[in-house]
Amino acid sequence: TAPDWEPFVDRLMRTEKCEIYLTGSSAHMLSKEIATQMRGRALSWELFPFSFREFLDYKGIESEDARSTKKRLLTQKAFEEYWESGGFPEVVGLNRLLRIKILQEYFYTILFRDLIERHDVSHPKAVTDLAYWLVDNAAAHYSVNNLTGYLRSLGHKVPKATVADYLEWFEDAYFLFTVRMFDASLTRSNANPKKIYCIDHALVAATASGILVNAGHLLENLVFTALRRYYPENFNYKTKTGREVDFIVLLRAGERRLVQACESLVEPRTRKRETTALSEAMTELGLKSGTIVTRIEDEVIEIENGTIEVVPAWRFLLDPLESMG
């Protein structure tokens, strides 16, 4: 960052009729620290990789009527491209190998500039190994205890408190996000296993160590980023019988929405598992509707205690709130 930028910006704001845009998330100053410096005189906006609607706009596809019969096939085709490329603008339209190479460079840059250099990390290999594990396990549960044990199994003597710091730094850098279990008790919520998600599903696919990445986990990660962009307050939900719903979204005025992500409901056991979990959660929370986001399936399932709307990912991403009913 430029030295003494604060008094310079302060002088501009007092003497000139102008708008000033400041960006953060660098090795020197995060966006929330800029907001702190300019407290009371600034509005903060979170910037994410392209949403699907922004991706359509970038491609020159009119997003306002993207669901019309005339535009639907074009929109669905664009979603398949978005599924492969993700939302980082620089990689859109590139061939697969170059796209993967650039996304991998993003991964290393975030690790070394926004984390290791910024925080002067004394165990850089531990941070790198942890980041790889979390990306490999995007949309999976973790606890600080099991992460600490994993790092120790690799020979890293890192205490639990330091691992917790690493997780907080990942989130500060808008790289990896933690979602807690929904619970009226904050203590229990913090003690329960949590889930991890990445800022971009294509970044997961590009940097994960496995040859085949779990498509269901990628879809869940994609649903998370769509929700996180608009609704910071979303949690994982577990019913009294132990069944899991991927997201409970807390809206304004105390409203709640339930969202499940599942690549396909074609297999009968999968369909029963997903709908039963959602039905139980709806009953426990007094809700009459729930949503299951799939890759391509589109239907309405009437159940005894309400309605489950099954929506294809492309339609959900265009308007998450409308899709949640």
Rank of each mutant, 00 (worst) to 15 (best):
V300T: 15
L258P: 04
K194F: 05
L219V: 11
Q260M: 10
S264C: 10
R295K: 12
T276D: 14
T276G: 00
A191S: 15
L287P: 03
A205R: 11
R257S: 03
V223R: 01
R295C: 00
P232G: 09
E220Q: 12
G290N: 12
L318G: 04
L219Q: 10
C262N: 10
R271C: 06
V300N: 10
R295V: 02
T187N: 13
A202Q: 01
T291I: 08
W314H: 12
N236E: 08
L321W: 04
W314E: 11
E299M: 14
L287H: 04
I292W: 01
E255L: 12
T291M: 08
G210R: 11
R252G: 15
V266W: 01
Y237T: 13
S189H: 08
R228E: 09
Y237G: 10
V266P: 00
F224L: 05
P193H: 06
P320H: 03
T270I: 14
E220C: 08
A215P: 00
A215V: 08
V310F: 08
E302R: 15
L265E: 03
R257I: 01
D246M: 08
T276E: 15
T294N: 10
L227N: 06
L258T: 07
T307M: 09
T276R: 07
M282G: 06
A184M: 13
R271L: 09
E255P: 02
E297P: 05
K194M: 11
P232A: 10
K240D: 07
P312C: 10
D319W: 01
V311M: 04
T275Q: 14
L186G: 00
V310C: 07
G306N: 03
G254F: 07
G216Y: 01
L251E: 15
T225V: 14
R269K: 13
T276C: 02
A277Q: 09
R228A: 13
L250M: 14
R229T: 11
R243M: 14
L321G: 00
T241E: 12
R228I: 00
N190W: 07
P320S: 05
V213T: 12
Q260K: 06
E309N: 15
E309Q: 14
K238T: 15
T294D: 04
V311K: 08
K194D: 03
R256F: 00
P193Q: 06
K272L: 14
R273C: 02
D200R: 01
R271E: 09
T239P: 13
P268R: 06
F235Q: 03
G290V: 11
I303A: 09
L212D: 12
R188H: 05
